[in-house]
Amino acid sequence: MTNYIIRRLLLLIPVVIIITFGVTSLMRVVPGDPATLALGQQASEEDRERFREQYHLDDPLVVQYARWWGDVARGDLGTSVRQRTDVTAELRRRLPVTLEMLVLAVGFTVVLGIPAGVVAGIRRGSVFDYGVRLVSIAGLSIPSFWLALLFLTLPFIWFGYQPPLDRPGLFEDPLRNLERFWMPSFVLAVGAAAGVMRITRSAVLDVLRNDFVRTAYAKGLNERVVVIRHVARNAMIPVVTLFGLQIVGLFGGAVIIEQIFTLPGVGRLFLTSLINRDYPMIQGIVLFLAVVFMTINLLVDLTYAAIDPRIRYS
C-alpha cells in the first residue's frame, strides 16, 4: 500500500512538470506585453523596462521557469503582476469561498444523487424509476450557468426575491451565509448529481443480478439490510470513479458560477488573471489546481480499497 502510494506520487512529478512548463510557455506566446498591460499605455519606456527587470520578463523561458520553481520550493508563488499582491496570500484569501461552495455542492450531489439512484435501480420500471431517469437526463442537459441565471431571474420576477449580496462569515451569521451559498452550490451540483444518479442506478442494476443478492434474500434478510449492506456497497466503485471526475469538473463550473453570483473565489481570480495576462497568478493557480486534482484522483483510487477489501494495491 505504502509502496503503491509512493509510486503514484513519483508518477505525479513528470505530470506536474509538464503542466507547469506547458502553462509557462503558453503564457509567453500570448500577444501583448505584460508590462504595458500592467502599467497602462501611458507608462514610459523606462518604467516598462524597470518592470520587466523586476519580474525578470526578459530572461530566457527556461531560466524563468527554473527561478519560479526555486521560489515555489520556498513557499513563494510570486507576486501578481496586476494587483501587486502576493499570489499565495491571494489564493489563501479566495480559497474559503470556493471551498465552501464546493463542499456544499458535493453535499447536494451525494444527497440528491445516491439515494435516488439506489431506489430507482431497485424499483426498476416503476414510476419513481422513470422520474429519476427523466430528472437525470434533464439535469445532465441543462447548463449550470443557465440554471443559475433562471434562479436569479425568475424568483425575483415572481416574488421579488433577491438573494443576499453580502457575504457574512459562516460562523458570524450561519443562516445568511447559507442563504448566500446554497444557490450557487445547488446549480453547480445539479449536473453532477444527475450523473451520480445515473451511474448509481446502473451500478445497482448490475449488482442486483449477482447470486449473493439472491442468497441474502434467501436467508431471510429484510430488504433494507440487503440493499444497504450488500447492494449499495458493491455498487459504489463506479460511483466513486465518477464522483472523483465530478469534483474536478465542479472546479470548472465554479469559474462560471462564481462569476454569475459575484463570489470572489478562486474561479473568478483565475478568470480575471487570464484576461489580464497575469502570469504569476495563472501559474500559481494552475499549480495549485494541478496538485488538488491529482490528489483527488489518488484519493479516489485509494477509496476503492476502502470500499472493496478485495482490491489491494502493491
Binding site: L11, V15, G252, G253, I256, F270, I275
Partner: peptide, 24 residues
C-alpha cells in the same frame, strides 16, 4: 501517457480557457 495525464487532470472548460487566452 504522461502528457495525457497532464491534460486530463484539468476540466475541459479550464483547459479551453487557458488556451483561448493564448490564441485569442
Amino acid at each position: 501517457q504522461r502528457f495525457v495525464d497532464a491534460v486530463m487532470a484539468f476540466p475541459l472548460l479550464i483547459l479551453a480557457l487557458v488556451m483561448i487566452a493564448v490564441v485569442g
